[in-house]
């Protein structure tokens, strides 16, 4: 039975993938890509990797899709100028991808001894951290440095997006996200969903310590709620020079670094936590990170400043 389900999933995924590549219209391709992301998250669920599934759905399907859709909308006016790469380039790219894909498949599917894994080692030391979700333990204890630096990457990415603003508009508001004429449904959803969505976001963050969920998934849900309100025109995007906004962006990585450095005095060194307070510290860091991620993702979708700052 489960084989039938799996084969059906594979078929669906292949269909969406082929649709993404072959779609003539850019928008269709993006929508197919979003569908593909959601289907992949179902596959991760079937593989019992709930954390990966949540991330794939939130980031791979949701946030990336939204950014791509916005890009499509912005590209429409300049469509005529753009030239698609020639047939030869397309075939070359296709062959290259197919080659890499076949080689990867050959290596991964080759019958081998049971793959070595760090999972037992991860489980063996979990008590020392005091959390029950192994993914969170890896992300915030064993490999905390990677997680920390990835958040710095996010801030750099936002600076990169902002850098595209014309000099005149620096510090001003991004282009409004508001739909030209927000439909009644959108306005209704924007009024009803956020309380629930925020609750889900907070739950995902809070829950991440012991169960699947975590900062990125929670932060993405929070960002989605914020964007929904903006799109319905119920709120205005802040000016990019607003210091309060800047501090919200920086608070996550800054607190993480501060906690890490405090480890030099309070524990065994950088990014180690005193055993009795490990959990509250990690949860506090996660909350700050989720907040920063939500604001950064929202601002990335919103794009660079597009209006002069107000006097």
């Amino acid at each position: 039975m489960s084989l039938v389900v799996d084969l059906f999933m594979v078929l669906l995924i292949l269909t969406s993938a082929v649709w993404t590549v072959l779609a003539r219209d850019r928008r269709d391709a993006v929508i197919a890509f979003i569908v593909l992301g959601l289907q992949l998250s179902l596959v991760w669920m079937r593989l019992m990797a709930v954390d990966v599934a949540l991330t794939e759905a939130a980031v791979g399907g949701g946030a990336t899709g939204l950014v791509l859709l916005r890009a499509c909308a912005r590209l429409q006016p300049v469509e005529a100028e753009g030239r698609l790469p020639g047939l030869r380039a397309q075939i070359a790219a296709g062959l290259l991808c197919a080659g890499v894909g076949v080689a990867l498949a050959a290596v991964i599917l080759a019958p081998a001894a049971p793959a070595p894994s760090l999972a037992p080692a991860v489980a063996a030391h979990m008590d020392e951290v005091g959390l029950k979700n192994p993914v969170t333990v890896v992300l915030l204890a064993y490999r905390a440095l990677d997680t920390l630096l990835e958040k710095v990457v996010l801030v750099l990415g936002l600076i990169g997006v902002w850098a595209l603003a014309p000099d005149l508009f620096w510090g001003g508001r991004p282009a409004s996200l508001r739909a030209a004429s927000p439909s009644g449904t959108l306005t209704f959803l924007a009024r009803v969903l956020p309380p629930v969505g925020v609750l889900i976001g907070v739950y995902l963050v809070w829950n991440g310590a012991d169960h699947p969920g975590g900062t990125f998934q929670g932060g993405t849900v929070l960002a989605a709620m914020w964007l929904l309100v903006m799109m319905a025109g119920l709120g205005e995007l802040p000016e990019t020079r607003a210091l309060r906004l800047r501090r919200l962006v920086a608070v996550g990585p800054a607190l993480f670094i501060a906690v890490g450095l405090a480890g030099f005095w309070m524990a065994d060194g950088f990014l180690s936590y005193p055993p009795e307070y490990a959990k509250p510290i990690i949860v506090a860091v996660e909350v700050a990170l989720a907040l920063s991620i939500a604001v950064i993702l929202g601002l990335m979708v919103a794009g660079p400043a597009a209006k002069e700052p107000e006097r």
Partner: peptide
């Protein structure tokens, strides 16, 4: 094991990141 003075390596990594965040947040 961590060697004496190893904390310097952490500083080498973190100092510029802190500076970057400070520029961002203080404006």
């Amino acid at each position: 094991a961590t060697t004496p003075g190893g904390g310097l390596l952490v500083l080498a990594l973190m100092l510029p990141a802190v500076g970057m965040l400070a520029i961002f947040a203080l404006g």
